[in-house]
């Protein structure tokens, strides 16, 4: 599986890059790139005070992009969770991209590798959706659904609710994930866009484990839900 996913990664990069000229030219479809730090925040809770980074970046053209997504959580100088995805993103509808590629869970250990197929885009009523199915070692499966909305209070102040849920097809005692609906988080962040590209924010984030996962977490002596105040910055360039 490890070899397979590496091969897959290489193939994807090659495919994506071959469909783009190496340098941008004067046309309507220049090669562009964008890095989006959706969340770079400190979370305050009774249990721990983690730093969280949620970022995406792409390089590509109008309809074809190479897309990187990452989630990192650090507590007390230790990386507790780290995940990175490398995806080939192709527009399939005016507001939707299909994304296929690989996901590597670096932390917690043991590492896990997944193949990814997902869809990202803007649903009716302006909900930003990211939904993905993950297929891992020896047929393991997982799924994730995220939705975000932006409510403009003024031209610069934005209230943004966000929910995300994870599902697993099997129990994984090592990583404390159980089959079925595993965990979810809901956040509400209020940001001030100093510029379009840079916005500090404050908010609240609520996490909860469900089903088997909740049992594992409980057995491990950790709480199954947590409410955290957050403060951070959102930026892109």
């Amino acid at each position: 599986m490890k070899n397979l996913s590496k091969k897959l990664t290489l193939t994807l990069w090659a495919t994506a890059l071959s469909s783009m000229p190496v340098i941008a030219h004067e046309g309507d479809d220049p090669l562009l790139s964008r890095v989006m730090i959706d969340q770079f925040e400190w979370r305050d809770s009774d249990e721990a005070e983690p730093y969280v980074l949620e970022a995406q970046g792409w390089i590509g053209k109008d309809l074809h992009k190479l897309w990187i997504k990452t989630d990192v959580e650090r507590v007390d100088g230790e990386t507790e969770e780290a995940e990175i995805q490398a995806l080939y993103s192709r527009a399939i509808a005016p507001f939707w991209d299909v994304q296929v590629g690989v996901r590597q869970d670096l932390k917690p250990t043991p590492e896990r590798e997944w193949g990814v197929i997902g869809i990202q885009g803007l649903a009716p009523y302006f909900f930003e959706i990211d939904a993905a199915l993950f297929i891992g070692d020896s047929g393991d499966t997982a799924a994730r659904l995220s939705a975000e909305y932006e409510w403009m209070l003024t031209q610069k102040v934005v209230l943004s609710p966000e929910v995300s849920v994870n599902f697993y097809g099997q129990n994984d005692m090592h990583r404390l994930t159980g089959s079925g609906l595993s965990d979810g988080q809901a956040g509400l962040r209020l940001r001030y866009e100093i510029r379009r590209e840079f916005a500090p924010y404050i908010g609240v984030n609520w996490t909860k484990s469900f089903g088997n996962t909740a049992d594992f977490v409980r057995d491990h002596g950790e709480p199954t839900s947590d409410t955290q105040w957050v403060a951070g910055v959102r930026a892109w360039f």
Binding site: P30, L32, M152, L153, T154, R196
Partner: peptide, 19 residues
Amino acid sequence: YGTLKKMSHYYNFRERTVG
């Protein structure tokens, strides 16, 4: 041009608000 492709409403500061 690049900015418009990254965020097409970048220059619009008349977006609908709660008001």
